[in-house]
Measured scan of single mutants.
Amino acid sequence: TYTWNTKEEAKQAFKELLKEKRVPSNASWEQAMKMIINDPRYSALAKLSEKKQAFNAYKVQTE
């Protein structure tokens, strides 16, 4: 089980997950979700809006 003390740690864990699963920077949210949804870190960020925000930040960083 994973635990995160801060929102920032949770966001980092979520981005690490995207990186580890090699989600391409041109992937849509739907494509990315299919690649990461079974990992416990997918739940790091509770709100869908937070997940999408972190995903978009990840995409910008990896382009």
Rank of each mutant, 00 (worst) to 15 (best):
A44H: 02
L48W: 06
A44C: 05
Y2W: 11
K47R: 08
Q61V: 10
A10S: 05
V60N: 14
R22A: 09
F14E: 00
A46V: 13
W4A: 06
A54T: 09
T1S: 15
P24H: 04
K21H: 07
N38W: 08
Q61I: 10
N5W: 08
K11P: 03
S49M: 12
L48F: 05
A57F: 07
Y58N: 04
N26L: 07
P40R: 06
S25P: 12
K15P: 00
P40F: 13
E50G: 03
T6V: 03
F55D: 04
A27I: 13
Y42C: 02
W29D: 01
K19N: 11
K7R: 06
I36Q: 00
S28M: 07
T3H: 14
A54F: 05
S49I: 05
N56L: 13
L18K: 00
Q12C: 14
W29L: 03
K7V: 13
M35S: 05
P40E: 07
E50Y: 06
K52N: 04
K21E: 04
K34Y: 12
A57Y: 10
W4H: 06
M35D: 05
T62S: 14
K51S: 03
A32D: 00
S25Q: 13
A13C: 12
I36D: 00
T62L: 13
R22S: 09
F14M: 02
N26H: 11
T1E: 15
P24I: 02
L18Q: 01
P40S: 05
K11W: 15
K15A: 14
R22T: 06
K47H: 11
I37V: 11
S28D: 08
K34A: 08
S49W: 10
K59G: 05
K59W: 05
K15W: 15
N38C: 13
Y58E: 04
D39C: 02
N56M: 11
T3Y: 15
A57S: 10
E16V: 04
K11N: 15
T6N: 08
K7D: 12
E30Y: 08
K34N: 14
L18E: 00
N26P: 02
N26V: 08
E63K: 12
A27C: 11
A57D: 13
I36L: 05
R41S: 02
L17K: 00
K47D: 13
K34S: 10
V60D: 07
Q61F: 13
E16I: 05
K11M: 15
Y58H: 07
